[in-house]
Design a protein around this nucleic acid. Structure first.
Lengths: 360, 360
DNA sequence: GTGAAAGCGCTAACAG
DNA sequence: CTGTTAGCGCTTTCAC
């Protein structure tokens, strides 16, 4: 069926007039072994001509390595509707390639077995794992980490007691949410709504919600459950949640959305009701997805440095897989609040002008 | 370093008191071989207890299969800023898992070697290939297809002469663009601008551009190069391109954007200039990303059924890899024009109301 | 410097 | 019905 017969190291050896050993030695540049320049050249040329690439299975069978990174994306439905994960994915994939690793994508839906990725580990398909959107009810991950399988977590550190073994690239969602909410409070708002995504087994959600609540209480404002709605991180759910919030008067005067996509949906609901942003309702989002700047009006939001997050995670994992533990176990990235127009803190301005970054 | 010693089929055999052959037979449910119920149970239990998963490398070394699909995403920078590819990715990954395949993600940037995926094939890391965002200057792909390596193309069919060997899930971008442009013409527009992404080596771009041009010419309107701007598929580039278009009077009265993300950016530029959509400038996008409905105003756009595209591609590839060629070599999906408010064909309405689908 | 031989973990003939 | 054996393609001691 396949036109050309598989080319193996044997073919290369034959063509170069040497043994397979020599081929392997040359191609892998094994140090400490000296091979005549002439032989080396012949081997290289033969391999080139035949388009030889060593069989990955055979190689990893003997080496015990796969040079493959597993990428576990829980709540993968996100991919369909939100822009944060794709950014991360891009960065993760890009950096992995630069480091010579391939990426095996393991998406996990809410409905599927959450620990399917364990088979990748047990079947030795991968040398390491990067986990995005960690579920708080994942019971297998701690066990894996305890056994020193190389794992890097993105987003949040968890499982007290295991801290010293966990490697992560974090952001402090709770602190950032608190800061964002405080920003709205400082602008004089007292009826601040919050739309977040489905809370169960999702760390990011829980901490954003908590930050919102803390900010209110620290300011002496009442935490009103009626002002908190749950969606599912899509624009559609943000739209519907906002409609629910607008069914009751007095309206909230501000909204802190769990992510930018939800904010977009909510803004559509606000516009549809004939209300203005930010004059009638101020809006703050979360993530700073690339389109946030182009929403109407441009969205004030907490920036998560997705690309840097991805890069650092791969670098960390790469060290781990090589057996030299990285210097830091946890890298915490800053999450500035990017102040644009939707929160009402600044007047209309042209896109691309210096954007504000709120202090603490 | 790793806590538990690797568990092999030998351990399972020992624990179950049988030979490795029997373990293999039981675990793979080899048909035609009958094994005593008692033995089978013991093997299964031993495997379960040890958490045994066969070593993937060893297995694929002997079987010649990897049960892995390669996913080649050219122009991967898209992932960062546009929502179409992520949707596709989700569907692709989801369906692959359902069919028992893993997904190896091979992103290709414009700067990187475009044929890096060849190593996956040569190194026999994958059993088949799905290609997204095909580059028109890819010279390796036709060769691969000619040799009957299982490949499914998403988006567009190419390379005349190879048609009978190419499997693809297509949309007719040119026809759809023509229809979208015709829609604007029917609404009375004569100065219709077009913003598309960087044209070189990108099929989708070329055909959308061509469709736009054909519609104009068919209607007896002049194709004015000054009304055509090139961006890079991001909202930022749409914004800038629209600014360029608004630097010259008379303004265009309508815009056909190469994708929805560009449309979003362009709409921001239009709003900023104090112009109204659709009264001053009507806008039509392409892709129907999930957020299109929540833009201000809701975006009229050509729908690409990303999720179905992904599902069909995997099903096709899965047949190919099993050696039973699918019935159809090319599946063409419909691309309806979803009429919302941004084109001016219909008045304001609530979100979620019946959306219009334009006829041809 | 180069080649022969063993073995990674698994599957699949082939005996028993 | 179960066990023994060979071999997938590669790397890696160990002799030559």
């Amino acid at each position: 069926m396949t036109g050309k017969p598989r080319v193996t190291s044997y073919q290369v050896a034959k063509r170069a007039g040497v043994s397979r050993t020599t081929v392997s030695l040359v191609l892998n540049g094994v140090p400490g072994i000296s091979i005549s320049e002439e032989t080396r050249r012949r081997v290289l040329q033969a391999a080139e001509e035949l388009g030889y690439v060593p069989n990955a299975a055979a190689r990893s069978l003997v080496s015990g390595q796969t040079l493959t990174i597993g990428l576990v994306v829980s709540h993968a439905e996100h991919l369909q509707v939100d822009a944060y994960i794709p950014q991360l994915l891009y960065s993760l994939s890009h950096t992995s390639h630069q480091h010579g690793y391939r990426v095996l994508l393991e998406t996990v839906e809410d409905v599927s077995r959450p620990d399917a990725y364990l088979e990748l580990v047990r079947g030795q398909r991968i040398d390491g794992l990067i986990v995005v959107n960690i579920r708080s009810d994942d019971s297998q991950l701690p066990e894996l980490i305890r056994r020193n399988f190389p794992v890097v977590l993105i987003g949040f550190r968890l499982w007290p007691g295991l801290e010293s073994k966990i490697y992560s690239v974090e952001t402090d969602d709770q602190e950032a949410s608190e800061r964002a909410t405080r920003h709205l409070i400082a602008l004089g708002h007292t009826r601040i709504a919050h739309i977040t995504f489905s809370p169960e087994n999702y760390y990011a959600t829980q901490s954003r919600h908590r930050g919102y609540r803390h900010a209110l209480e620290a300011a002496g404002l009442e935490y009103d459950p009626a002002l908190v709605q749950f969606g599912n991180y899509s624009a559609a759910s943000g739209y519907e949640a906002m409609q629910r919030l607008l069914r009751r008067k007095p309206y909230p005067t501000a909204l802190f959305a769990g992510n930018d996509t939800i904010a977009l949906g909510a803004m559509a609901a606000i516009h549809e009701k004939g209300l203005r942003i930010p004059q009638d309702i101020a809006v703050v989002g979360y993530d700073d997805i690339p389109t946030a700047l182009y929403m109407t009006p441009p969205l004030t939001t907490v920036r998560i440095p997705a690309v840097e997050q991805g890069r650092l995670a791969v670098e960390m994992l790469s060290s781990l897989m090589r057996g030299n533990p990285p210097e830091h176990t946890h890298i915490r990235l800053p999450t500035p609040l990017i102040v644009r127009e939707s929160c009402g803190a600044r007047g209309r301005q042209r896109h691309g002008e210096q954007e504000g970054v709120a202090g603490s």
